[in-house]
Write a protein that binds this DNA or RNA. Structure first.
Lengths: 105, 105
DNA sequence: CTTATACTGAAGTGTGGACTTCACTAAAGG
DNA sequence: CCTTTAGTGAAGTCCACACTTCAGTATAAG
């Protein structure tokens, strides 16, 4: 079910990948630029970018020999919406429950 | 960094675990109740519940021989906030960019 | 043309995690 | 007491995945 969310959550479960997203939130960057502050090879970063691209979080474009990565505007909204929906569902249920218990007075 | 978010995102990256959360959003349930619609053993569900408990999404209580699981009210908010923060950061940056480009007219 | 840079592809390694089975404990119910 | 029900613990299997190295390719610079 919903392999999109699968890949999305799984992608964000990796600390290196979230660090990349954090960096890209401040602006586009090249592969080697992204690799600098992280303790991994450039190859690893390229692989991470591929994963993030696959699940719609990141977009990359290669010009010359430099590949520049940037965040996709609505790439994280599915995550946000999923969490928000569950929370509101739970809150509604708890409200109803509180109401029913309140009638006992 | 932030092992909380690590475990949280990684936990939600598993479809079976998200299915459990979905089910619990409708109300508390026992281990075997949760296992019924899923194609896994009761043991697997118990293990999943342990994971979800570790990262603060689920709470369980055993009374008699039945363990009942329920959602923790704010268990998903770190995810929601993380995604929202990145989105708003990106949007602000794009707005500034658009403004600067707009001055070109 | 030569050299340095920026990345890519393939292949291998090692670890973690999802899942199972099996044996077991404990509580309900007849 | 005996049996069913509900879950637990340990151990093992299997696969995915993060990461590396190494050998390339293509572009930029001197």
């Amino acid at each position: 079910m919903t392999p999109d969310l699968d890949r999305l959550f799984q992608a964000l479960g990796d600390p290196t990948r979230r660090a990349i997203v954090d960096r890209l939130a401040e602006g586009p960057a090249s592969v080697s630029r992204l690799a600098e502050p992280l303790c991994v090879t450039v190859t690893a970063v390229a692989q991470h970018l591929h994963v993030l691209e696959q699940c719609g979080v990141v977009r990359t474009e290669k010009v010359g020999r430099v590949r520049t990565a940037s965040l996709v505007p609505d790439g994280l909204t599915p995550v946000e919406r999923w969490a928000r929906d569950r929370r509101s569902m739970l809150e509604k249920r708890l409200d109803r429950l509180a109401e029913i218990l309140g009638e006992g007075d």
